[in-house]
Amino acid sequence: MTEARRGAVEFRNVRKEFGAFTAIPSLDLSIAPGELVTLLGPSGCGKTTTLRMLAGLESPTSGRIEIGGQDVTRLPANRRDVSMVFQSYALFPHMSVAGNVAYGLEAGGLKGPEARAAAEKGLDLVGLGGLGDRLPAELSGGQQQRVAVARALVLEPQVLLLDEPLSNLDARLRRRVRTEIRDLQQRLGFTAVYVTHDQEEALAVSDRIVVMRDGEIAQIGTPRELYDAPASEFIADFIGEANVVDAEIVATSGGQAQVRLGGLLADMPARGLLAGPARVALRSNALRVGAMTGGGLDGAVATSAFLGDHVEYEIDSALGRIFVIDDESDQPLAPGTPVTLTLKPRGAALIP
């Protein structure tokens, strides 16, 4: 796939209505050539509608969509120069693996031997070389998903669209296949738009994440930006399941704030806030659980659960019930045990 096939994507003031219901009020979004951008959010947030409008499966009520600098707003799906990978794989069960991969090429007029050679090259790209003669049912779920990716890639689209591509796989396979998709995207450099409701999946594969809520962009940024500097309580809770607690900014200086959380004092970026009441997002792995000594946030264990490589706690404190993941101990503390929570160097952020 050459540089010329890496298409930029533009949504300009795009609105989508379904009768009296407005799914997308007004969407402006730019995706650079060669970038993998994930649309993330809860069910009904508008991410799938956005992807379907880009694919040509839905028409916007108003606004403009561009791919590679071309206005495609009213073009049918087969003239958009995009390929889509569906969560259901959508493989033909009676066709061989190579036949499935070659299908789109043959439908576009490429002759049999040439289409077969291109299909074998596509299978090599996704690590399935030599399996072209098998039927889809003879492959694992992860292998079938890679066949679906190969079928999309051999068409050399300007943009690859992935709609919940891992939702039918078990947890271990999802981790492996998401790594393979990301490695492939980085190696070939194609533009990709990826839809998921799984925040861990989004963090793992994306150059940037677009978090959507009620049809609008709640925040857009790199995985690190969204995790370390959530723009709202919704983002803090949705990306990483943070504890959002009341705090007090004692003082600010040079863009930094001294923040009091119960008995804890911590320094963190002020994010434009001034001294006074504030809200802080505390990541579940940003706190240490220790014997009650004072000098921190005192509380008591409400629940504990041993999960192999870490212990999960709910701690009752002056800030309310705090969820903590402790990966430094393999011996859970019993409910009722008095404890003191202290902060690790990162994992707490003021919410502007």
Rank of each mutant, 00 (worst) to 15 (best):
R6P: 06
F11K: 08
E17G: 11
F18Y: 15
G19N: 08
F21T: 15
F21P: 02
P25Y: 13
S30E: 09
S30M: 07
P33R: 08
P42K: 05
L51D: 01
R52W: 11
L54E: 05
G56K: 09
S62E: 14
G69A: 00
V72N: 09
V85I: 11
V85L: 08
L91P: 07
H94C: 08
N100T: 04
Y103S: 04
L105F: 02
G109R: 10
R116L: 12
R116Q: 13
A117W: 06
A118K: 15
A119Q: 07
G122L: 03
G127R: 01
G132M: 05
L135E: 11
A137F: 12
G142E: 02
Q144V: 07
V147S: 01
R174M: 06
R176L: 14
T179Y: 09
L184A: 14
R187H: 12
A192D: 03
V193A: 03
V193F: 01
D198I: 07
L203A: 04
I209G: 04
R213S: 15
V245S: 06
Q258P: 05
R260T: 13
D267Q: 11
A286V: 10
M292N: 15
G294S: 04
G295S: 08
G296M: 05
L297D: 00
A302G: 04
D309Q: 13
V311H: 06
E314L: 15
D316M: 04
A318Q: 11
L319C: 03
I322E: 03
I322K: 10
L333P: 13
T337R: 15
L341P: 00
P345V: 10
